[in-house]
């Protein structure tokens, strides 16, 4: 089977909500979260999707 989409990274300000799997980036503030997500998006060539205000994922499409 060929997996087309993959979560490359998880970025969050709320560490209660996450566990294991993809690399996780914990942030203190919303600004930091946006900054890291923007950088990761550019580096990984993936898209930063917002699942909620405090939880972003980088997805390779």
């Amino acid at each position: 089977m060929n997996i087309e989409k993959a979560i490359l990274a998880v970025i969050t300000t709320n560490k209660e909500k996450i566990a294991g799997g993809a690399p996780i980036f914990l942030c203190e503030t919303k600004q930091e979260l946006e900054l890291i997500a923007a950088n990761l998006e550019a580096i990984m060539d993936g898209i930063a999707h917002a699942l909620s205000e405090e939880l972003f994922i980088i997805v390779k499409h």
Partner: peptide, 20 residues
């Protein structure tokens, strides 16, 4: 609508970053 991008009432995709 939040992170969801819409054209009229049709959902297009999820965009996370405010800059984008």
């Amino acid at each position: 609508d939040g992170a969801g991008l819409y054209v009229d009432n049709i959902y297009i995709m999820n965009i996370g970053l405010a800059e984008r």
